[in-house]
């Protein structure tokens, strides 16, 4: 298990949020942190969550930008589509041609889209008081942090449950054995679509931020039912 996640689990996120609420300069961030976060002791079945997915112009938060954001609130029992949100935002850098076909978002849509700053209040309201759930935390957490540093001159911190990290716990725990290497057996893929298949979840067309957020929420529901008891404390899951 990566050392960072062990450290994260030891982290006291509610206290950290209190501190950040007091020190943040941006009123939007102050409000967000003031909304608090469930403590590490909370059983997962009592935790309000929100699945979040970004489509971006590339993989490096320092050079690439967010193009669209999808969020959908849920808990271990239900996903609430009626409160889902989806935004297209204008990237700081021009959209690459390949990126356009990839996300299905057109240049004209992007040109007409607002800057992330204009939707930031709405986005933070959707996240407030909920644990963010992502598939591969390095994208959403890092990109949102970088985007806020660029616009507000301060970043953002928040706990996440990473469905890919959970999947890695079972499929990446041990290094491949000699026998596996001799047979050239490939390790199980822990990408979103492949992970979903293992839980009998249907195929969803990828690369739409809202669909991916929904896909992530469903994956966590499935992982929890298969691998965890409803009483599992949040600290065993979050990062």
């Amino acid at each position: 298990m990566p050392a960072s996640s062990a450290a994260a689990r030891a982290l006291d996120w509610p206290t950290r949020f209190e501190t950040l609420a007091a020190t943040a300069k941006s009123p939007a961030l102050q409000r967000y942190y003031a909304g608090g976060t469930p403590s590490g002791d909370t059983p997962i079945s009592d935790v309000p969550m929100v699945a979040m997915d970004f489509e971006t112009t590339g993989l490096d938060p320092d050079i690439h930008s967010i193009v669209s954001i999808g969020v959908v609130p849920f808990n271990t029992q239900r996903i609430y589509c009626r409160n889902a949100r989806h935004w297209v935002v204008r990237p700081v850098l021009p959209l690459h041609r390949e990126s356009v076909t990839f996300h299905g978002i057109t240049h004209s849509e992007v040109r007409a889209a607002p800057d992330l700053r204009e939707i930031l209040d709405d986005l933070l309201d959707a996240l407030a008081g909920r644990i963010v759930v992502v598939h591969y935390r390095s994208i959403e957490r890092a990109f949102l942090d970088a985007a806020l540093r660029w616009r507000l001159e301060e970043g953002i911190e928040f706990p996440v449950i990473d469905t890919m990290e959970l999947e890695a716990r079972w499929h990446r725990q041990k290094p491949p054995s000699l026998w596996d290497r001799l047979r050239r057996r490939k390790p199980e893929s822990i990408r979103l679509a492949d992970s979903r298949t293992r839980y009998g979840l249907p195929y969803y067309a990828p690369h739409h931020a809202l669909t991916d957020a929904l896909a992530t929420a469903e994956l966590l529901m499935a992982q929890l039912q298969h691998r965890f008891s409803p009483d599992t404390p949040l600290r065993e899951l979050w990062q």
């Binding site: 029992q77 239900r78 996903i79 589509c81 889902a84 839980y199 929904l214 529901m221």
Partner: peptide, 8 residues
């Protein structure tokens, strides 16, 4: 579709 809830 916007009113649907999802359960697993």
């Amino acid at each position: 579709a916007t009113q649907v809830e999802v359960a697993y």
